[in-house]
């Protein structure tokens, strides 16, 4: 315990020094002003490795104050190792309150999921992003992808999408379906399932995306149109869990985890841990559900 206190005193509030925090804050404001555009930022050294959530951590630490209530989730779960460690680190450094309750949080840091429950205007969702450049798969040079964004030249990503359709028979590509933000920038929603992508559009909360290893911040402001890339005849669809109910709650209409039992049989459980707790204990929290086009 004594060592622990000593450790706290030897760092600035919220770990990052004020000079660097100001830089991250200025860049975040620019990211909000240009929705979907990736703003380069300093990405200072953190006590975890780059690519393990540093981008999200930079944003959270630049935002957090002693009055904030923080929730950290990883793949929808409050209990995963990554989430626990990041949560404790921010708590140690910023003396903020912690919660598992999605509705009570003022800042939510997440990886791979947007919470099922509708987020409000008082909440900021910080998403950790491994690869902020959605065009990296079709063009490996940063200078060229930058020009492609500058000229809104997205032909290559459309071709890739078409090829994926030809190969798989549908547009969905696992996670991180490319999105068009405010009709101008094609961006990555971070590797969230297709299920979550429609929730990015015209939301009440602010979405911030931090990519620590790649040193980029981008943003989707509230009430901003976000469209998943799709063709006129081949439309984007979210995951359909037809005839599937959650083993633990008996509920459906939520993103499900597929779990294998010891006898190799499989069952499904709602992925968002706080949402699962809530539907098991009481009324279902408000959700925005997307209906797939015919």
């Amino acid at each position: 315990m004594i060592e622990n206190l000593k450790f706290q005193d030897s760092f600035n509030y919220a770990y990052i020094d004020e000079f660097t925090k100001k830089e991250i804050r200025r860049k975040t404001l620019k990211a909000v002003c240009i929705p979907g555009y990736q703003v380069p930022y300093s990405s200072p050294e953190m006590p975890i490795s780059r690519g393990w959530g540093t981008g999200g951590l930079h944003l959270t630490l630049s935002l957090v104050g002693p009055d904030d209530v923080l929730k950290v989730i990883d793949q929808g779960s409050d209990a995963s190792v990554n989430a626990c460690n990041l949560r404790l680190f921010v708590k140690e450094m910023a003396q903020c309150a912690l919660t598992f309750d999605t509705a009570a949080a003022t800042i939510i840091q997440s990886r791979h999921r947007v919470p099922e429950e509708i987020l409000t205007e008082n909440q900021i969702l910080v998403l950790q992003v491994p690869q902020p450049e959605i065009l990296r798969g079709v063009e490996r040079h940063e200078a060229k992808t930058r020009m492609m964004h500058a000229e809104a030249d997205y032909a290559k990503i459309w071709v890739t999408l078409y090829e994926a359709y030809v190969r798989n028979g549908h547009l969905r590509s696992g996670a991180g379906h490319p999105i068009m933000v405010n009709g101008r920038y094609v961006a990555t929603p971070s590797p969230i399932p297709g299920w979550d992508v429609p929730n990015l559009s015209m939301a009440r909360c602010l979405y911030l995306f931090g990519a620590g290893r790649e040193k980029r911040i981008h943003c989707i402001p509230p009430f901003t149109p976000v469209k998943p890339l799709e063709f006129e005849d081949i439309r984007f669809k979210v995951e359909e869990f037809v005839g599937i109910k959650c083993q633990m709650s008996g509920q459906d209409k939520a993103f499900m985890d597929q779990i294998y039992a010891e006898d190799f049989s499989r069952y499904f459980v709602i992925n968002d841990s706080n949402f699962l707790d809530k539907v098991r204990q009481g009324p279902r929290p408000p959700q925005k559900l997307f209906t797939n086009p015919e």
């Binding site: 600035n12 002003c33 935002l63 104050g65 602010l206 402001p221």
Partner: peptide, 19 residues
């Protein structure tokens, strides 16, 4: 206070910019 006032004001500015 550089640290805490700066943080609060930044949050206000961020919300204002977002809305």
């Amino acid at each position: 206070n550089q640290v805490f006032d700066g943080q609060e004001h930044y949050r206000t500015l961020l919300q204002a910019t977002a809305r």
